[in-house]
Amino acid sequence: MTSDELKRRTKAFGIQVIALVEGLPDTKAGWAVGRQLIRCATSVGANYRAACRAKSKADFIAKIDTVEEEADESLYWLEILDEIKLTKPELVKPLAREANELTAIFTKISISSKKK
């Protein structure tokens, strides 16, 4: 997967999460979980773009580690949404799968970068 493809994929993930959160109930739980989820899901793409402009290998690794953390945090909040049943499981499952895949991709990139 190229850098541009990964940029598009991470942006699409953020946009899809925003759409999901827009459909959450207007409750304290919906607001709280939705706010956290939007924050970390959109951070995946934003921080990946920053990593692509890193000024050094150490800077790149630090930024990629942040991307990995944000992708994993997104998965956490999606799991919370699913477990407390704030929305339909069929809306959460594909996003949880994508968050898991993104976490794995960025974990691999981080490990590979540290070995070089």
Rank of each mutant, 00 (worst) to 15 (best):
I15M: 05
I15H: 01
I15V: 11
I15G: 00
I15D: 09
Q16L: 06
Q16K: 11
Q16D: 11
Q16W: 04
V17E: 04
V17P: 01
V17Q: 00
I18T: 04
I18H: 01
I18P: 00
I18A: 02
I18F: 03
I18Q: 03
I18D: 06
A19T: 10
A19V: 10
L20K: 08
L20P: 09
L20W: 10
V21K: 12
V21I: 14
V21C: 07
E22W: 07
E22S: 12
E22I: 06
E22R: 14
G23I: 09
L24K: 06
L24H: 10
L24Q: 07
P25C: 12
P25H: 12
P25D: 08
P25Y: 11
P25V: 12
P25W: 10
P25T: 09
P25A: 12
D26W: 05
D26K: 15
D26V: 11
D26P: 02
D26N: 09
T27D: 11
T27A: 13
T27K: 09
K28A: 15
K28W: 10
K28Q: 13
K28I: 14
K28G: 15
A29L: 15
A29D: 14
G30Y: 13
G30S: 11
G30P: 09
G30F: 12
G30Q: 11
G30T: 11
W31H: 12
W31T: 10
W31F: 10
W31Q: 08
A32Q: 14
A32T: 07
V33K: 03
V33Q: 12
V33G: 04
V33P: 04
V33E: 07
V33C: 08
G34T: 10
G34F: 15
G34K: 10
R35M: 14
Q36H: 11
Q36R: 12
Q36M: 13
L37G: 04
L37M: 08
I38P: 00
I38A: 03
I38Y: 04
R39M: 05
R39T: 06
R39Q: 06
C40H: 02
C40P: 00
C40L: 05
C40Q: 00
A41V: 05
A41P: 01
A41W: 06
T42P: 02
T42C: 04
T42I: 03
T42W: 01
T42M: 04
S43A: 14
S43Q: 05
V44N: 03
V44A: 04
V44Q: 02
V44D: 00
V44P: 01
V44F: 10
V44T: 06
G45P: 13
G45R: 10
G45V: 13
G45Y: 13
A46Q: 03
A46E: 05
A46S: 13
N47F: 00
N47W: 00
N47T: 01
Y48D: 02
Y48P: 01
R49K: 14
R49G: 02
R49Y: 09
A50D: 08
A50C: 09
A50S: 11
A50K: 07
A50T: 07
A50H: 02
A51P: 07
A51H: 05
A51I: 08
A51S: 07
C52W: 02
C52F: 03
C52Q: 14
C52I: 03
C52R: 13
C52G: 07
C52Y: 02
